[in-house]
Design a binder for these strands. Sequence first.
DNA 1: TGACATTATGAACATTGTTCATTAAATTGG
DNA 2: CCAATTTAATGAACAATGTTCATAATGTCA
Lengths: 200, 200
Amino acid sequence: MARRKGGIDRDALREKLIAVAEALVLQGGPEALTARALATHIGYSLGHVYNLVEDLDELVLLVNGRTLERLYDTLEEAAEKAKPGHKVHAIAAAYLSFCADNARMWSLVLGHKLPEGRALPDEYAARISALPVLVATELKAMFPKRSSDMLKRDVASLWSALHGLGTLEHNGRLPLIGAPSASVLAKHLLDTAFAGMKDK
Amino acid sequence: MARRKGGIDRDALREKLIAVAEALVLQGGPEALTARALATHIGYSLGHVYNLVEDLDELVLLVNGRTLERLYDTLEEAAEKAKPGHKVHAIAAAYLSFCADNARMWSLVLGHKLPEGRALPDEYAARISALPVLVATELKAMFPKRSSDMLKRDVASLWSALHGLGTLEHNGRLPLIGAPSASVLAKHLLDTAFAGMKDK
DNA sequence: TGACATTATGAACATTGTTCATTAAATTGG
DNA sequence: CCAATTTAATGAACAATGTTCATAATGTCA
């Protein structure tokens, strides 16, 4: 059994592959993420891409995982910096800014549909699950009397709403429904929702 | 200038093309909508598909237009049948049911991103714009004292939220964020939002 | 009937993702 | 140090995709 250094080189190359993938999407959008472009930019043959990664789907998930990680950090930081009663607003604003500022990477996240029958990697699923927890933490602090069942639904519905706002803005559909910017809508939604949650 | 019957046959064939496209998606999802499959099923050559339609993109928009039309009818009917104070709830429930019951067609709607630089056909845009108007009508009736500016934001934010719920459920992401079904969330969201809008 | 417009074809092209037999290189046991 | 074995890497091929276009067939009207 003659292994090499322990797959270290291969891991490094995988990292480079991910970095190149990110750069390609950043520059040309999701359509630019092709196997041949990857091969060219990492300086290896086309076939070798498939020795580093199972699929392009797997690669996309790896890239999207990084994006979700950055998003998490951004939201966490926004919540930290904001004043206590304003943290959810800050998270929402940061979320929408992130989508706008990272439009191409976000397209890759939104646009990727993994072939059915194939499950999301646990790590990836965890990255998604972690996001609304940031909201849950702040909501619990803001509405301590509220039941945890209610809070669960609050979090899920508000997070879904935020996702809807981000998606519609990302696709340029907000003007179609006669709406102002997503950030204005987010503030409005949170204000009315909080008003409805008051003392309950 | 010797025209034929006036393009009637061609229009009929276009209709058949759209119907076949719908059937293909219904049976095999968006991936099944290929130029060659279309050609086979309408009984013409591959090249002729491109005499009937500019693009596959155009065809997708035609199919999606029908889907949106059906969605509108469904929502309208749901609103009609519901009791006055419950109409928005009914619209939301109908929307989510529609997404679930027409999952493959809805995938085509959600998944289609037209190449940038290309504008949405007016008719298609109008079909999108029409949808939240149904909500606007009911909200106005429910909250007559509310300013029209506020109502505009109410409609846009609630519609976006609904879209977010539908999308997350469609992609199976709701369990990931520890959420119950979209319909439960929709009811919850509307209840708290309405509570927050009360007497304002 | 002949000129012309429309309808239809089918072969080709360019890109995709993906596979795989084969070759090159590196590591390790003796 | 060498030969065996494992790993790394190649490049040619395949299948499927959207799209184009010169050409042929067919219908329409003067």
